[in-house]
Amino acid sequence: MTRIVLVPGVLALLPEYAGVTDPVADLRAACLEAVSSLGNDVTVVGDTQGERVAAYLLAATLRNFDEASVLVVGNGSARRTEKAPGHLDERADTFDADLGRALRAGDTDALGDLDRDLAADLLAVVDPIAALAGLLPAGAHGEMLYEDDPFGVKYWVMRWNR
């Protein structure tokens, strides 16, 4: 069995950016719960910043399973609202809705055929998410632990056992 987890590459999760209070406490709890279900041999799929977030989450969890595991670090648009990091782009909502639907449905065709140019415009980090197309069986059902956009950036925390 391969265990797969998706988390967003939120830098606020990193200890070097900790404040007195945690602005991403709920997200952090969900990420830690998801990553805790991975095995001890984890392949990370993410960009440079995503790899740092992954390294933190892996170091912060005790994982004693002997199964192959993949930790994917990616997220939806960062242009969902006027206060979002990239300000509002009207296309963000549809883009994220479609991507969220594909993740829930295990729609590997859709995940493998994401519009990378639009994703770049929307500041979405989807290259790692596209890799799920080759990791998940078509129609794989994942468990959604967190889905929200508290800062105008779309986050999903999901896990799959296949």
Binding site: G19, V20, V153
Partner: peptide
């Protein structure tokens, strides 16, 4: 010597 109260700017 003290962290910010709550930091999310540029870190979301």
């Amino acid at each position: 010597r003290r962290p910010p109260a709550r930091a999310i700017r540029g870190l979301a």
